[in-house]
Design a protein around this nucleic acid. Structure first.
Length: 594
DNA sequence: ATCTCGTGTCATTGT
DNA sequence: TGACAATGACACGAG
């Protein structure tokens, strides 16, 4: 390995707002009908637009617009496309926001399918359409329920795939929506109207992939890193937000707040648990978002047992789904903490268990995230601040992994290690929140131990908690790395396979070329040997060679350069093959021939 | 009943 | 030498 000298760092500047600016400018241009170069006619209505935007969003427009030579074309859409379905899609193309209602979602879906609108089908319709057309349902994924409860629910909610709603006729369902699908397909008689109220007309949902950028408009995200860049480089532009506009509707029980989380694993539970202690999130929901003000109030008035004013489960699941879509790599980043030096030590008390939240600019947009907003409500209800009471830890699954989740997981099994750990928390009666232990810096931890004058029992417990917590996170990182490694290797395998494929194709191509050259040379030698009969023995041999499949080496000896004349040139025969080939063929072919 | 997957924990090793 | 991170191995619960 050689060292070529001082390493040159490569820096990358990436604007987090550029693409949004472009899109917004295009929308402004469209509104002013500036630079619009295409007219779309739908049901006798005309829409001016930019062909490049349409073509980039829709396969249909791509095909029609790229094949046109005439400037400023008019695209008349067939009857299959209606204004009701097309207008929101056009809006989406320019804003990344899809406004829809229960009434027009099917129409939009139909038009989107017809027009081949990208970035919508999987992310949106596969979930939303069956959701709305099926009348909604309750998620059976409720953490912490006893086995008997779960099996009871299972027996009630599971139905065969054949029961899927006829509107969709699709078997493919996103994994995260599978439970929804099952619930949605239940017959009305199986559903309690209190649990699954239908979504009414006045609930307009907004699929918003861009609004967050407004908050970042004056910010620039700068990734400065040395090559090679890694996936740890957080691109702020990948963060999007979800808007879930809702003016009325039941809310979910706070005791069931596991449903609020867009993630459906114990990990998510753990991460959400930690949110309750996050000061950054304590203000979530206090924003003056007009749409949500009423809900905030409703939430704050909720008692844990009061389900009468719960938000529609359907809407909640829709909101979850939207939020999940907005943070597509949220799950993948859950296990990946930021580098320690990137975490503000002042906020270390927030708990590193929710390090994934650090990937989000909560200060910029948390209030607009439906599930985070809801969490804040639960947060207020359950924790009420930094310190957690025993009641809190017992009642809500949205607590720290140590204090609550482990407790909630063990409802059916009272003597597991987690339960004993939880009980120990109560026994040792720590003078500080136990969730702080793992997130503190070592120095702060030691200072706290010194300050608090803990008993040996407390000390042992605290150190044990810290060790386990650190190890837990390390295990998560380790597994994430493993998975990343697997994915990377799979990618490399794929790449190598395609390279191999390409090389084989090249090989075959070269074989054909060789055959062509052989035939050409054969013909050439034939004609030469006819013209110069006395000296043509070698040429005839050459012709025989080129007309046969003999390996080149076999014929090296009789071969001679046609440029040489006279009997004494035999001496040069062997050495002149290269000259001959070089004269006859391009260099590449020479190599291939030999 | 069995398998798979995700996760927490422990023990060990290297830094 | 102690703290910590990484990782293999194991256990456990859920589906």
């Amino acid at each position: 390995m050689s060292v070529d000298g001082p390493r040159t760092s490569v820096f990358t500047f990436q604007s987090a707002v550029h693409s949004h600016h472009v899109l917004r400018s295009l929308e402004e241009l469209r509104q002013k009908e500036l630079l619009c170069d295409v007219t779309v006619e739908v049901e006798r209505r005309s829409f001016r637009a930019h062909s490049s935007v349409l073509a980039s969003c829709s396969d249909y427009f791509y095909t029609r617009l790229t094949n046109r030579s005439r400037p400023n074309p008019t695209v008349r859409l067939p009857d299959e496309v209606t204004v009701e379905g097309f207008e929101p899609l056009l809006q989406f193309a320019y804003t990344a926001k899809l406004h829809f209602t229960k009434e027009n979602i099917l129409e939009i879906h139909r038009c989107a399918e017809f027009l081949g609108f990208q970035n919508l089908d999987k992310a949106c319709f596969e979930f939303l359409v069956p959701k709305f057309s099926g009348g909604g349902g309750t998620s059976k994924k409720v953490k912490g329920k006893s086995k008997s409860q779960a099996s009871h629910e299972k027996s009630q909610s599971i139905c065969s795939p054949d029961d899927q709603t006829p509107e969709t006729g699709e078997d493919r369902v996103p994994q995260d929506a599978s439970t929804v699908m099952q619930a949605a397909s239940a017959t009305p008689s199986e559903e309690s109207p209190e649990e699954c109220p239908p979504i009414t007309n006045d609930k307009v949902m907004q699929l918003d992939l861009s609004t967050l950028y407004d908050d970042f408009q004056k910010e620039l995200a700068m990734d400065v890193h040395c090559e090679p860049p890694t996936d740890k480089d957080l691109n702020i532009a990948s963060i999007t937000e979800g808007h879930f506009d809702q003016r009325e509707g039941p809310l979910i029980s706070p005791t069931d707040c596991s449903q609020l989380c867009p993630l459906n694993s114990a990990q998510s539970s753990g991460d959400l648990d930690s949110i309750s202690g996050a000061p950054d999130l304590s203000n979530i929901g206090t924003d003056d978002n007009q749409v949500f003000d009423s809900n905030e109030q409703t939430f704050s008035e909720l008692t844990p047992k009061d389900c009468s004013t719960e938000r529609s489960t359907v809407e909640r699941e829709v909101a979850e789904h939207l939020a999940k879509g907005f943070w597509p790599d949220l799950s993948s980043t859950l296990n990946e903490p930021l580098p320690l030096d990137s975490i503000d030590q002042s906020s270390a008390g927030n708990g590193s268990d929710f390090h994934w939240l650090k990937h989000l600019d909560l200060g910029a947009a948390p209030d607009d995230c439906p599930f985070l907003r809801d969490l804040s409500s639960n947060d207020r209800q359950t924790s009420g601040g930094d310190t957690l009471s025993k009641e809190d830890t017992e009642d809500s699954p949205c607590m720290s992994p140590i204090n609550s989740r482990e407790t909630s997981e063990c409802e059916s099994d009272g003597d597991c290690a987690q339960c004993s750990s939880s009980e120990q928390v109560q026994e040792v009666d720590l003078p500080f929140p136990v969730e702080q232990i793992s997130s503190m810096t070592r120095r702060a931890f030691l200072q706290m131990l010194k300050r608090e004058q803990l008993t040996p029992e407390q000390l042992e417990f605290v150190q044990d908690v810290r060790r386990r917590s650190k190890n837990r996170m390390a295990a998560q990182r380790c597994r994430k790395r493993k998975l990343d490694c697997i994915y990377r290797l799979e990618g490399e395998i794929k790449k190598l396979r395609s390279e191999k494929e390409k090389l084989l194709q090249d090989h075959n191509q070269l074989k054909l070329s060789i055959e062509d050259v052989r035939q050409n040379l054969s013909g050439l030698c034939q004609s030469l040997s006819t013209d110069a009969a006395p000296q043509s023995e070698q040429l005839q041999a050459l012709a025989r060679y080129f007309s046969s499949d003999c390996p080149t080496s076999v014929l090296l000896t009789p071969m001679a350069s046609p440029s040489l004349a006279g009997p004494d040139q035999d001496a040069h025969a062997n050495s002149s093959l290269d000259t001959f080939l070089a004269d006859t063929c391009p260099e590449g072919d020479t190599v291939a021939l030999r």
